[in-house]
């Protein structure tokens, strides 16, 4: 089939368009640095240990914003301007178009996370207690779990105005409940319980595991399994919800199915995931 050449040239085209859209580029790369400096100056206490402790939350914020905002808007714009409609009269498979959007988002994420990590290393002397390979795997799983959610928003949003509304609605609980913005031990008990429903909680937990507590993949299999399940279900749901044209109706049955599947994973994690180690205060 013509999947591979179409997938790679679509991804290349999307990345090129992203690089040429100066506003998107600057925003995507500068936003994580802004958060980095704000948080590190305010809360790190000036020590590399304190700086490192904040990094799981900062990486998570970078991953959420990078997964939600860019890709959803790109998908809606392509659909609204009729670019997807033009693709549709060629033999290009839908799966190549869908996966190329996901791949583009991962490339963009990789750039902004890497830049943030390098700046954090050089300016705030952060270190990683565990292995760097584990850290990369955790970050990648985080991206794979979150990008499909942004893409689902892109598929169900009616137009370019609706897309940011949906992603903002998801962004704030994912940022505040997960302990990404406010360190988890400082959240009240009821919020800590609620946090077990939010997928990013497991990302912060895994990142702290490898960066602060020096844990390996084996110790982190619980939260990582949640992220992997989210990724698998999210990618599958994109196949169900993708729309070539804005005149195609959003299939309510499928949206319900998608939301129930995601909620099911969250509920499963709520009851089955082991206690969150990040709820312990790091510096007693």
């Amino acid at each position: 089939m013509s999947f591979l050449p179409a997938f790679s040239s679509l991804t290349r085209a999307h990345v090129l368009m992203f690089l040429r859209s100066r506003a998107a580029l600057v925003w995507t790369l500068a936003f994580p640095q802004f958060f980095l400096f704000m948080f590190e100056f305010a809360f790190s206490g000036g020590t590399p240990r304190g700086a490192t402790y904040l990094m799981p939350g900062l990486f998570t914020i970078t991953l959420i914003s990078g997964s939600f905002f860019g890709v959803a808007l790109r998908m809606v714009t392509e659909r609204e301007t009729g670019v997807l409609r033009r693709h549709r009269v060629t033999p290009v498979p839908a799966v190549a178009v869908i996966l190329s959007h996901g791949a583009t988002a991962l490339v963009v994420l990789a750039c902004s996370v890497t830049l943030q990590a390098v700046v954090a290393r050089l300016v705030f002397r952060i270190g990683v207690a565990g292995s760097a390979t584990t850290l990369v795997i955790v970050l990648l799983l985080g991206g794979l779990a979150l990008v499909p959610i942004g893409m689902i928003a892109g598929s169900i949003a009616r137009d370019t105005r609706a897309a940011p509304a949906i992603t903002n609605f998801l962004f704030f609980p994912m940022m505040f409940l997960s302990g990404a913005a406010i360190p988890f031990p400082f959240l009240p008990a009821w919020m800590q319980r609620l946090a077990r429903l939010v997928p990013t909680t497991y990302l912060v937990e895994s990142l702290q595991g490898v960066m602060v507590r020096g844990q390996g993949l084996g110790r982190l299999r619980g939260p990582l399994l949640v992220l992997a399940l989210m990724a698998a279900i999210g990618i599958g749901l994109n196949g169900l919800l993708f729309r070539w044209e804005s005149t195609e109706p959003v299939r309510r049955g499928r949206v319900t199915l998608a939301l129930s599947a995601l909620l099911l994973v969250c509920w499963g994690a709520y009851f089955l995931a082991p206690p969150l180690e990040m709820s312990q205060r790091p510096f007693p």
């Binding site: 050449p5 179409a6 040239s9 085209a13 090129l16 368009m17 009729g82 033009r86 060629t90």
Partner: peptide
């Protein structure tokens, strides 16, 4: 209605569409 990605060059657009065909 012509809908071509605005931030690509003609050569890139033709290359993209060429990749859709055997």
């Amino acid at each position: 209605s012509t809908s071509i990605p605005l931030d690509l060059t003609p050569a890139e657009v033709l290359g993209l569409y060429a990749s859709f065909y055997p």
